[in-house]
Design a protein around this nucleic acid. Sequence first.
DNA 1: CTTGACTCTGGAGTTGCTACAGGGTTTCCA
DNA 2: TGGAAACCCTGTAGCAACTCCAGAGTCAAG
Lengths: 165, 165
Amino acid sequence: MKIGQLAQQTGTPVDTIRYYEREGLLPRAARTEGNYRIYDAVHLERLAFIRRCRSLDMTLDEIRVLLCFRDRPLESCEDVNTLLDAHIDHVADRIRELLQLEKQLLTLRECCRDGRQAADCGILNELSHGATEVAGPSVSESHLAATHAGGRRHVIQRKQKHGED
Amino acid sequence: MKIGQLAQQTGTPVDTIRYYEREGLLPRAARTEGNYRIYDAVHLERLAFIRRCRSLDMTLDEIRVLLCFRDRPLESCEDVNTLLDAHIDHVADRIRELLQLEKQLLTLRECCRDGRQAADCGILNELSHGATEVAGPSVSESHLAATHAGGRRHVIQRKQKHGED
DNA sequence: CTTGACTCTGGAGTTGCTACAGGGTTTCCA
DNA sequence: TGGAAACCCTGTAGCAACTCCAGAGTCAAG
């Protein structure tokens, strides 16, 4: 089948499939005379696997590792368990952070119930003189990601680091 | 004061301060003879404000709006409230998603309690033939971001979209 | 006068895509 | 047979919020 069909069958955008190929998650597809990629059931399975992992919010690097195990069925799968445990920890950490964050935001929101002048806005004042810590090793330290992103549908990711010494 | 001191006092990396200037969140700093940036208390306050907002996981665009209100103290702050409410919704949505995700991951983890050969690994098999839906409008739809990111310390963000029709 | 700490600019890299532009191929229908 | 629509190709740039680097200049101390 051609890339469009594969895309449809797995619910993956065409661009994304080509991207996975570039990234080495999918093997280079064979080509027709006219230079179109052609795929078979093996590709389809592999892509479905990848997508299932992505829907569980794994990174491409994590998925690479899992694919590696799939390709070597005789090795122990202990590391699969380890990887998954780590991933679960990340998610749990992030949940904890966000709950914390939600609490802070709700507290902040309480500062200004009714519409006033900005000068008297409890929220702006609070943010200006902050009971909320200014910087600290606050948000993350733990490998996790943020709250919202630009586009419409299906947003999943972003990153930031932060140096200190 | 110079940029290094400002950095230290606010717990912000130097590069980030310069980045905020480029982005227009901080005004262009005055310069010394030797072309070093110099800052005063006003800059410090503004940067602290920005960092407090960032620690609440707001985007730079959201912060831009808040700064705007800070700079026009006579206008109504209603929109501040609205913005914060929207932000709170984003966070709440993301929490819901992650809890859902955590449940799925724990279920998956149950599939393989002990170390076996990868061929018999319940997790790999489950991911291969998935009770977890393959694609679907699963993860987000709602403006939010993901679970973990590459670097060491202080990770905050990432993004992804997903086209369908 | 040298060393080292600090600063400058500009550009590339991060993640996982998405969205073109500018072209070629296939297929269908009149 | 011919022409348009629908599909495919490559390559490049963009997103968010930084981070990191190279190559250079500045400044204070010894």
